[in-house]
């Protein structure tokens, strides 16, 4: 059993939890994910690692309540336990000195972006962060990201905070201004990552995206998380979750992520949602 040691409500639908999982904390690296199961009847869901504390043996996850499991998870409190919590899974981010990096986080995608921002900064990169959300309330970890950024830009869809518009607008502007950019990383909704990749493609700027397909085991067995990358079929759980943003077939990913939308609704309804 894995105990919840801390819980923070980030917004109406976004919550943060620190989970006691010493073995996972010991090995966790930025860019990796965990799989958890709440109880005996629960499903296994992947969540990207938002932070970890090796000394305290904790792993932080931040999740948006979008389906049955994340909603149920949101109802748990400090002192409650999860039945399974396994990881760290997937390949860690390549933390190296690129030069100038643009780190783009959208919505709940800011959570997994944060430790990568921190490590890239500590590596000596010049970090430009662009954080986007639908509105001010849904924007998270702004201060934390800012601490490790040389520049930070905020966008909201409705203009309630920062610039009104999309993260890709800011990126385009930076490129138009002739800023030298060595690497762009985007984590967020699939459509956002697709747009970011489209912006950088003509300029051949290295672009990495972190994908979140449907998974079952997360250990390289079921193949449910396969994504088309270039001419190849890759498995997000063992080959990813980060891939070359210019090669990912986003439309196929969006479609495959909608595989169980009806079942999800049914499940939520039964849970009294």
């Amino acid at each position: 059993m894995y105990k919840i040691l801390e819980k923070k409500v980030m917004s109406d639908t976004v919550k943060l939890m620190k989970i006691k999982a010493p073995l996972v904390a010991k090995k966790a690296k930025a860019g990796q994910f965990i799989i958890l199961r709440i109880d005996e009847k629960g499903e296994r869901i992947p969540l990207t690692i938002a932070d970890y504390d090796r000394k305290k043996g904790t792993v932080t996850v931040i999740f948006m309540e979008v389906g049955k499991t994340t909603k149920q998870l949101g109802t748990l409190n400090v002192g409650d336990s999860l039945l399974n919590f396994v990881g760290p899974l997937g390949q860690p981010s390549d933390i190296e000195k690129y030069g100038t990096v643009v780190m783009i986080g959208g919505g709940v995608g800011i959570a997994p972006l944060y430790p990568i921002v921190r490590e890239l900064k500590e590596m000596g990169n010049y970090v430009i962060s662009i954080l986007g959300a639908r509105n001010k309330k849904l924007l998270m970890l702004e201060k934390e990201v800012e601490e490790f950024s040389d520049e930070i830009y905020i966008t909201t869809d409705d203009g309630s905070k920062g610039q009104k518009g999309f993260v890709s607008d800011v990126l385009q502007k930076l490129i138009d201004e002739g800023r030298k950019i060595n690497m762009v990383m985007a984590i967020g909704p699939v459509i956002m990552m697709k747009v970011v990749a489209n912006v950088t493609r003509p300029y051949k700027i290295k672009t990495l995206v972190s994908l979140n397909p449907i998974m079952v085991d997360g250990t390289g067995m079921c193949g449910g998380c396969r994504v088309s990358v270039g001419d190849e079929t890759k498995f997000a759980c063992v080959d990813g979750p980060e891939f070359d943003g210019h090669k990912v077939d986003y439309d196929n990913l969006m479609l495959r992520n909608r595989r169980f939308v009806c079942e999800e609704e049914e499940s939520c309804k039964l849970a009294g949602d």
Binding site: K41, G42, E43, R44, K68, T69, V216, F260, E263, E264, E266, S267, L270
Partner: peptide
């Protein structure tokens, strides 16, 4: 994951 017993079990 016992999807044959969905939605009693969560995995569809």
């Amino acid at each position: 994951m016992r999807a044959y017993d969905f939605p009693n079990y969560d995995t569809p």
